[in-house]
Computed example of a mutant assay.
Amino acid sequence: MRQDGFTLLQLLLVTGLIGLLVQLAAPGFRQLLVNQQRQVVAFELASGLRSARAQAILQQQDVLVQAIDDDWGLGWWMIVDSSGKGVEDPNNRVLLERRLSGAVPVVGNTRLLTRARFIAQGWPAYTGTGPGNGTLHICEQGAAVSHWRVVMANSGRIRTESGARAEQRCEPDEKLGGSAPSHTDYR
Rank of each mutant, 00 (worst) to 15 (best):
G28E: 04
F29V: 15
F29A: 14
L33Y: 03
N35V: 02
N35E: 13
N35P: 00
Q36A: 02
R38S: 02
Q39D: 09
Q39N: 10
V40M: 14
V41R: 01
F43L: 15
E44P: 00
A46S: 00
G48P: 08
S51P: 00
S51W: 15
R53A: 15
A56M: 05
L58D: 14
L58N: 15
Q59M: 08
Q59K: 12
Q61A: 06
Q61M: 07
V63N: 14
L64G: 13
V65D: 07
V65R: 03
V65F: 02
I68S: 00
I68Q: 08
D69S: 10
D70N: 08
D70F: 04
D71P: 00
W72K: 03
L74N: 07
L74I: 07
L74F: 12
W76V: 06
W77T: 11
W77M: 14
I79C: 09
V80C: 07
S82L: 15
G84N: 09
G84A: 04
G86E: 05
G86I: 12
V87P: 09
V87G: 13
E88S: 15
P90Y: 08
N91A: 14
R93K: 13
R93W: 13
V94Y: 04
V94I: 15
L96D: 12
E97T: 11
E97P: 04
L100Q: 05
L100D: 03
S101R: 10
P105V: 10
N109P: 15
R111P: 06
L112A: 08
L113W: 13
R115Y: 09
A116R: 01
G122P: 05
W123I: 05
T129G: 03
N133H: 08
N133G: 05
G134F: 08
G134P: 09
T135W: 06
T135Q: 08
T135H: 03
T135M: 03
C139A: 11
C139I: 06
A143N: 09
A144N: 07
A144F: 06
H147S: 04
R149Y: 09
R149P: 09
V150W: 06
M152K: 07
M152F: 06
A153V: 03
A153R: 05
G156L: 08
G156N: 08
G156S: 12
R159Y: 06
E161T: 01
S162Y: 02
A164Q: 01
A166F: 07
A166N: 12
E167I: 08
R169C: 04
C170H: 12
C170W: 10
E171N: 11
